[in-house]
C-alpha cells in the first residue's frame, strides 16, 4: 500500500518560506482553492495557508540553534481528524494515504481541527469550510505535466531541497532511505497518529585538528629564514693557499 508523504530536512531548511507562498499560489487557483485572505491590505491581515514556516530558538546564547520549522498536514497514517468528522467530508484515500477534505460535504464544524494535534487544518473564514494541505493531489497525478514536475508545488519550489516527496511505505524510495539513514522522525509520536511526513534532524560536521598537524616539515616559514651563508669576508681557504 502506498503512503505518500513529505520529508522535511531541518538540516538544510533556511526558513525562506518559498514553500509557503508557492503552496498558496498553486492551490488558490487549483482544486483546493481559493485560499482566502481577510484584511488583505488592512490591519491584521490573515488568510488560509496550507503550510507555514515557524522559527524556534533552541538553547541559550551563545550556544543557540535557530531552527526553521515548516509544517503542513502530516497525512497521518492513523489520522485522528478523519473519524471524528460527522459528515465524512474528511477522509483518507486508501490508494495513496492522502488525507483530504471534500468541500462539498464539509459543514464547517471545525471538529476535525480540534482533533488534529498538529494544528494542520485551517478553516476558510469566507467559504466556511475546512481546508488543508492536499499534497497537491491535483499536480502529482497530472499526466499533462512532465514526470519530474508531478510533485507538490512546495517541493519543486524549495531552493534547498529540504522538502522531499515520495512513498514512505516503499522501502526503496528516496524518502524511506533518508528516514532510515538520516534519523527521520515523526512529530508528537506520543499520540500514535503515525504521521506520514517525517523530519530529518540537524547534523553537524566538525573538524578536529591535532597539534602535530600545525607544525609540519613543509611549513613555508622555513623557507623564509636566510639561507646559511657566511659573510664574504669570513676567513676561508682562499686566504691561505693557492693551487
Amino acid at each position: 500500500m502506498t503512503q505518500l508523504a513529505l520529508i522535511i530536512d531541518l538540516n538544510v531548511c533556511v526558513g525562506c518560506s518559498a514553500c509557503v507562498t508557492s503552496c498558496k499560489e498553486w492551490n488558490t487557483s487549483g482544486l483546493a482553492g481559493p485560499m482566502t485572505d481577510r484584511n488583505p491590505y488592512d490591519a491584521d491581515p490573515t488568510g488560509t495557508f496550507f503550510n507555514r514556516v515557524q522559527t524556534f530558538e533552541v538553547g541559550a546564547y551563545p550556544h543557540t540553534e535557530t531552527v526553521h520549522f515548516p509544517k503542513s498536514c502530516l497525512h497521518c497514517e492513523e489520522p485522528p481528524c478523519v473519524p471524528v468528522c460527522p459528515t465524512g467530508a474528511s477522509y483518507k484515500r486508501p490508494e495513496d494515504g492522502i488525507v483530504l477534505v471534500d468541500y462539498d460535504k464539509c459543514i464547517g464544524c471545525k471538529y476535525c481541527s480540534w482533533a488534529c494535534p498538529y494544528g494542520a487544518r485551517e478553516i476558510d473564514e469566507q467559504q466556511k469550510v475546512m481546508k488543508k494541505c492536499t499534497l497537491c493531489v491535483d499536480r502529482i497525478y497530472d499526466e499533462s505535466l512532465p514526470e519530474r514536475e508531478r510533485k507538490p508545488s512546495c517541493v519543486l519550489a524549495c531552493p534547498t531541497n529540504a522538502r522531499l516527496f515520495g512513498d514512505v511505505h516503499d522501502p526503496e524510495s528516496e524518502v524511506s532511505v533518508l528516514i532510515r539513514e538520516e534519523g527521520g522522525y515523526q512529530l508528537m509520536p506520543e499520540w500514535g497518529t503515525k504521521p506520514a511526513n517525517h523530519y530529518l534532524p540537524r547534523r553537524k560536521t566538525r573538524l578536529r585538528i591535532h597539534d602535530d598537524e600545525l607544525v609540519r616539515v613543509d611549513n613555508p616559514l622555513k623557507k623564509e629564514a636566510p639561507r646559511p651563508r657566511p659573510a664574504l669576508d669570513e676567513p676561508s681557504l682562499d686566504d691561505v693557499t693557492s693551487w
Partner: peptide, 18 residues
C-alpha cells in the same frame, strides 16, 4: 514557478518569486 531549464535557479523559486 522556477524554470527548470534555467542555469541560475534550475527550477526552484523563492517566497517572493511565488
Amino acid at each position: 514557478e522556477g524554470n527548470p531549464d534555467h542555469p541560475l535557479n534550475q527550477g526552484v523559486i523563492c517566497a517572493k518569486g511565488s
